[in-house]
């Protein structure tokens, strides 16, 4: 019965989607872009010096919004660790994984971290940036934590890294406020040579801060899911 009613509800909502949202003209076949997009694509190289227009939108044109986004991610990680930690009932099972799995994860770990760093550093030149790169780095730690029970990451180190990265983001923004341009997150550094790693002023630095922050946040979140590898092994083993 519930299924029947939900099916009716879904059909109604589908009708709404098709009739209302389906009318919105798409740019897919036409020539016209939204005016904001046209302006940004035309001006981004002169404005920011970044080769990747999406990165320049995320970090500079809409940098304040990205600060809020990082804050939302921080709140989610905080909520996870508040909910999952400090509960006596959580007793993580100590997995006994096979030798091949453990050795393979140790072998892969440096390469995955290197790949994540590559994505972060080239965020303003190629697709990618701080968010995906941070997730890739966290994946490396995730694999290690999942497969081997003896690894202990220092939680303090993770949270210190995270706070430092967040403070770097805000400090760069305030430096723009105090500089000649007088606006928060203004690009106060030189643009450098186009299409090189140290180009585009503060964009690579902000994206590096975001990458470290996302990576350490997600590593901490993973750690709060698996309590035992994070130094609570004695309690878990009882």
């Amino acid at each position: 019965m519930r299924r029947f009613f939900s099916l009716i509800l879904i059909i109604g909502f589908g009708f709404y989607l098709v009739t209302v949202i389906g009318r919105i003209p798409f740019a897919a076949t036409g020539e016209a872009k939204g005016s904001v997009g046209v302006q940004i694509v035309n001006d981004t190289v002169n404005d920011t010096g970044a080769a990747n227009a999406v990165t320049s939108v995320v970090v500079l044109y809409r940098g304040f919004d990205t600060l809020g986004e990082v804050t939302v991610l921080f709140l989610a990680a905080l909520g996870m660790s508040l909910l999952l930690k400090g509960t006596e009932e959580v007793k993580a099972r100590v997995f006994d994984e096979s030798f091949i799995l453990k050795t393979g994860s140790y072998l892969l770990f440096p390469f995955i971290v290197l790949f994540g760093l590559y994505i972060i550093v080239h965020g303003h030149l190629t697709p990618g940036g701080g968010f995906p790169g941070g997730v890739v780095i966290a994946t490396a730690f995730f694999i290690i934590v999942m497969t081997s029970e003896m690894v202990r990451l220092r939680e303090n180190l993770v949270s210190i890294l995270e706070s430092l990265a967040g403070l770097t983001f805000i400090a760069l923004g305030i430096a723009g406020l105090l500089g000649t341009k007088n606006s928060f997150l203004a690009n106060f550094m030189g643009k450098g040579v186009f299409n090189t790693i140290l180009s585009a002023g503060i964009i690579p630095f902000i994206y590096a801060a975001i990458g470290i922050k996302v990576g350490s946040e997600l590593t901490g979140a993973v750690g709060s899911m698996f309590l035992s590898p994070f130094g609570k092994q004695e309690e878990a083993g009882e």
């Binding site: 740019a27 997009g37 046209v38 940004i40 939108v57």
Partner: peptide, 9 residues
């Protein structure tokens, strides 16, 4: 020759 970057961001 490029698509709109705003929706992607």
């Amino acid at each position: 020759q490029m698509v709109d970057p705003v929706p992607q961001a």
